[in-house]
C-alpha cells in the first residue's frame, strides 16, 4: 500500500512539473506587454524598458525559465506585476476561502446527490422524477444556475446576500450551486450502487437476520457505496480547489478562481502561473487523498494496492 502511494506521489510530482512548464510556456505566448499592464499611462519607451528590465523580461526565455523554476523550488511564486505583492501572499488567504467553498460545495453535492440516488434506487416513481431532475441539472451551465439562484433567493426573496465577499452567509448560494451541478453524478453512481447492493445475496442475508430496512440501508448498503463516493468527492475537492472560476466570478467569491480570472484579464503572468501551479498541486494531492480514503473505506482495495 505504501509503495503504491509512493508511486502515485512520484507520478503526481511529474504531472505538477509538467503543468508548471506548460503554464510558463503558454504565458509567454500570450500577446500583450506586461510593462504596459503595470504602467498603462507611461508614455516614454525608456520607462517601459526600465520596467521590463526590473522584471527580467528582457532576458532570454531560457534564463527566465531557469530563474522561475529555481524560485519555485523554494516556494517562491514571484511577484504580481499589478499588485506589487508576492504571488504566494496573494494566493494564501484566497486558498482558504476557495477551500471553504470547495468543502461546502462537495458536502452539498454528496448530500443532495446521495439522497436523490438512494430515493431513486428504492422507488420507481422517484426514480423517474430523479432522472428528469438529473437531466435538467446536467443541462444547466454553472453560471446560469448560479444566476438563477441569485435572482430567486437573493433578489426576489431576499433570503441570501447578493453582494460579494467571503462569509458564512455568502457561502450558501455558491455552495448550493456547486452542490446542484455536481449532484447528478453522485445520484447516478449512488443509485446504481445501491440498486446493485439491494439485489445482492449479502443484503438477502441481512434481511434474513431480521435487520430493519433502514438499518440495512445505513449500515450495510451505504457502507458499500462509501468508497466510490469518497473517491469522487476527493477528486472534486481537488478540482474545485484548483479554481471554481465560474462560480467565484458569478458570486464574486474572493478565491483562487476569481484571482486567476482577474489576473488573466490584467495580463498578470506570475499570478496566473501561480494559481495554475497551486491548482495542479491541489488536484494531485486530493486525488492521492481520494485513493487513500477509498482504501480506508473498502478493505478489498487495501489488498489490491
Amino acid at each position: 500500500m505504501a509503495r503504491a502511494m509512493m508511486r502515485r506521489l512520484v507520478f503526481g510530482l511529474i504531472a505538477v512539473t509538467g503543468v508548471a512548464v506548460l503554464a510558463f510556456l503558454l504565458e509567454f505566448v500570450v500577446p500583450g506587454d506586461p510593462a504596459r499592464a503595470i504602467a498603462p499611462r507611461a508614455q516614454s519607451a525608456a520607462v517601459l524598458a526600465n520596467i521590463r528590465a526590473q522584471l527580467h523580461l528582457n532576458q532570454p526565455l531560457v534564463v527566465q525559465f531557469a530563474s522561475y523554476f529555481g524560485n519555485l523550488l523554494h516556494g517562491d511564486l514571484g511577484m504580481s506585476y499589478v499588485q506589487r505583492q508576492p504571488v504566494a501572499a496573494l494566493i494564501g488567504p484566497r486558498l482558504a476561502d476557495t477551500g471553504a467553498l470547495a468543502l461546502a460545495g462537495v458536502l452539498a453535492e454528496v448530500l443532495i446527490g446521495g439522497t436523490l440516488g438512494v430515493l431513486a434506487a428504492r422507488h420507481d416513481r422517484v426514480r423517474a422524477a430523479v432522472g428528469a431532475v438529473n437531466l435538467v441539472l446536467l443541462a444547466v451551465p454553472v453560471f446560469v444556475l448560479g444566476l438563477v439562484l441569485l435572482l430567486v433567493f437573493g433578489y426576489q426573496l431576499g433570503l441570501a446576500p447578493v453582494a460579494g465577499g467571503a462569509g458564512p452567509a455568502q457561502i450558501v448560494l455558491p455552495a448550493l450551486t456547486l452542490g446542484l451541478i455536481g449532484a447528478p453524478w453522485y445520484a447516478q453512481i449512488v443509485a446504481d450502487q445501491v440498486q446493485e447492493a439491494l439485489a445482492s445475496n449479502w443484503v438477502r442475508t441481512a434481511v434474513g437476520k431480521g435487520l430493519r430496512d433502514g438499518y440495512i440501508l445505513r449500515r450495510h448498503v451505504l457502507r458499500n457505496v462509501l468508497s466510490p463516493v469518497l473517491t469522487m468527492a476527493g477528486m472534486d475537492l481537488g478540482s474545485y480547489l484548483s479554481g471554481v472560476v465560474t462560480v467565484e466570478v458569478v458570486f464574486v467569491w474572493p478565491g483562487i478562481g476569481l484571482l486567476a480570472y482577474n489576473a488573466l484579464q490584467n495580463l498578470d503572468r506570475p499570478v496566473v502561473m501561480g494559481t495554475v501551479i497551486v491548482g495542479a498541486v491541489a488536484v494531485v494531492a486530493f486525488n492521492l487523498l481520494a485513493d487513500l480514503a477509498r482504501m480506508l473505506a473498502d478493505p478489498r482495495a487495501r489488498e489490491e494496492a
Binding site: 445482492s200 445475496n201 449479502w202 442475508t205 434474513g208 431480521g210 430493519r212 449500515r219 458499500n224 478489498r300
Partner: peptide
Amino acid sequence: FRGERARLLGCVAQDAMAALNPVL
C-alpha cells in the same frame, strides 16, 4: 415477520462470499 424471522430460522447460503457483506 422481518423481526421474528431470525428467531424462527437460520439460512446458510450456497456462496458464502456473496452472502457476506464485503466491507464489514
